[in-house]
Design a protein around this nucleic acid. Structure first.
Lengths: 167, 167
DNA sequence: GCCTGTGGTCAAGGTCATTGACTAGATTGG
DNA sequence: CCAATCTAGTCAATGACCTTGACCACAGGC
């Protein structure tokens, strides 16, 4: 065996990058005057629009269970960012819709994202940015493929990106 | 307001990458026969060595509070991966040391990391890998710098990478 | 009209980490 | 030598986030 520890390891690097992005997101949103936000809110809000969406749809988009969405929505409703309405075409269903305040929050989220994107673009330039995105995608595909030695690569990808979808 | 959503956004991409890496890590460790592992263990174990380290040191390395380390260590001890000993040079201090079983687990963690690294290297080649790491680092520096409009860039970096150091 | 599938909820639990308050031993400076 | 202080680690409580499991109510096909 080698002397190893390959200390320039991608796994921790990506983890720490993820934490950094989340921290920046939270800071940016707070700086725009939205207090008491949490990372989960910041990633759920951009999935919504003023038209409204069903919780189940949101769950699928976010890659979490509908119970989890339910809880988050309840919290967001409590804070006045979303409201729930009945779906006229399906008595069982609800529609989660952004309130005006929610729309403002969503705008703030997008603004922060764009700010990050802009900072990234300024640091790397468009060409390297594009390259980076491509590399990242291929990297993740390669790592996801580890779980699927042969055959069901499709299934493995789905399993990774959706923690506990259906049984 | 543009039509925007810049859907090829780095923030979600990095988040999803991070989740993918964690999933792969867990799967790999499980495949090597270590059941009941959790992501936190998988990221703590590689920070240990057979020589032993103090909880406070570990906390600093992991970027979390010493209380959090304390809990994790307790769990790991319960599962037989680490043991605690008194530090002869300081009565207050403890030394956290891997048991033989813990050493095996650590080896498995490194093996999985190397597997991922190898898969990544195979997919991208060494040149693109190196480039990717560099881009990632610059990207994160740029995003971290957003938090520090002027002056204390150093402090902001530290704040991001260490959630709750000292008060 | 029943039967199955889907939308959503309640309840409980688990993981990871935090803040706050505290004890006990180490250190430093008069 | 001793008081003031710093440092190592703990306990207790809390919070964010998400899961599994068990349900109920409605939709829709046959």
């Amino acid at each position: 065996m080698s002397l190893e520890p390959p200390l320039d390891d991608i796994a921790p690097a990506i983890g720490s990058a993820s934490r950094g992005v989340i921290a920046a997101m939270m800071a940016g949103v707070a700086a725009r005057g939205f207090e008491g936000m949490t990372p989960a809110f910041a990633s759920l809000i951009p999935l919504l629009d003023a038209t409204g969406a069903r919780p189940t749809t949101l769950a699928a988009r976010a890659g979490i269970t509908k119970q989890a969405i339910s809880q988050l929505v309840r919290e967001l409703e409590k804070r006045g960012y979303v409201e729930q309405a009945a779906d006229s075409s399906d008595t069982r269903a609800k529609i989660v819709r952004l309130t005006p305040r929610g729309v403002a929050l969503r705008a703030a989220c997008f603004a922060v994202r764009q700010e990050m994107q802009a900072a990234a673009g300024a640091a790397l330039g468009p060409a390297r940015m594009a390259r980076f995105r491509k590399d990242l995608a291929e990297l993740m595909a390669a790592i996801a493929a580890l779980r699927a030695p042969a055959g069901g690569a499709r299934a493995a990808r789905a399993a990774v990106s959706r923690p506990a979808g259906r049984r």
